[in-house]
Each structure stands twice: as C-alpha cells, then as structure tokens.
Design a protein around this nucleic acid. Structure first.
Length: 111
DNA sequence: TCACTGACCGTGG
DNA sequence: ACCACGGCCAGTG
C-alpha cells in the first residue's frame, strides 16, 4: 500500500491550463474531454472549478474556448462580462446562437 | 470540525 | 422519452 505515489497536489490543475492553452484558435473543447485527457482522477466538475481559478494562472487560459458537452456556454457568467465569452468566440469565427455553438462538432477539438 | 457546493458527464429506472 | 443520482477534488460557511 504505500508505494503508490498519491498526487494530492493540485498538479492536475496546472495540466488543465496547459491543455486549454493548447486549444487552437477557432476551436472549442469540452470539460469532459479535458478531464479524460488528464486521467480519470479528475472529473469534469473539477475542470470547471480549475477554470474558476484560471484567472490567477499565468498566462491566462482561454477559458472561453471551453464549453460543456452540449456546446453551451455555461461558464459565460463567470467572465468579466456575461457576453464576453460569446464575443470572444464570435471573434474567432465561431457562430453562436442562443448561447449555443453552431456546428459544435465541427469546431470541436480534442486534446 | 462537518457539510455543501461547484463553469460537468454518464448511466439507470 | 424524461427524471434522478453518483463520482471526483478543493474551497468556503
């Protein structure tokens, strides 16, 4: 029992930031995809929590490119402005309708 | 100190 | 087809 190296640190959070920063411009991904890319240790919920602290990460991660599985801008309310997320995505040629990304699968990028 | 919540997702009834 | 619940980690009241 003991040889197992238990990572109780918040290392996985740093990993999340790295992946999110790797998202190419004009593409989006989902919380679950990031969680799966890191490992089963982290769940989608933790990714959202990490994003909440992402504003302290350096450099700041493009959290606006991360949406939920439905392609819905669930975290838009956590940005500086509730519409900032949509504005940023539209600036990257991503069409959004009713807070939902159009052609989400087409713009979906998996780590 | 204990309990609940949180930018979610998948499966079961 | 719809509703309900569990899981994972850390932070806050």
């Amino acid at each position: 029992m003991s040889k197992e190296i238990k990572i109780r640190n918040i290392d996985w959070i740093e990993k999340i930031y790295e992946i999110v920063r790797k998202i190419p411009k004009g593409k989006v991904t989902s919380y679950g995809a990031i969680a799966d890319a890191i490992g089963a240790r982290t769940t989608a919920r933790m990714v959202g929590w990490a994003m909440n602290a992402s504003h302290t990460a350096k450099p700041k991660v493009p959290a606006h490119r991360v949406v939920n599985r439905n392609g819905l801008l669930t975290g838009r309310h956590h940005f500086a402005s509730p519409t900032l997320m949509q504005e940023l995505l539209e600036a990257e040629k991503i069409e959004i309708n009713d807070n939902q990304i159009i052609n989400f699968e087409k713009n979906y990028w998996k780590p």
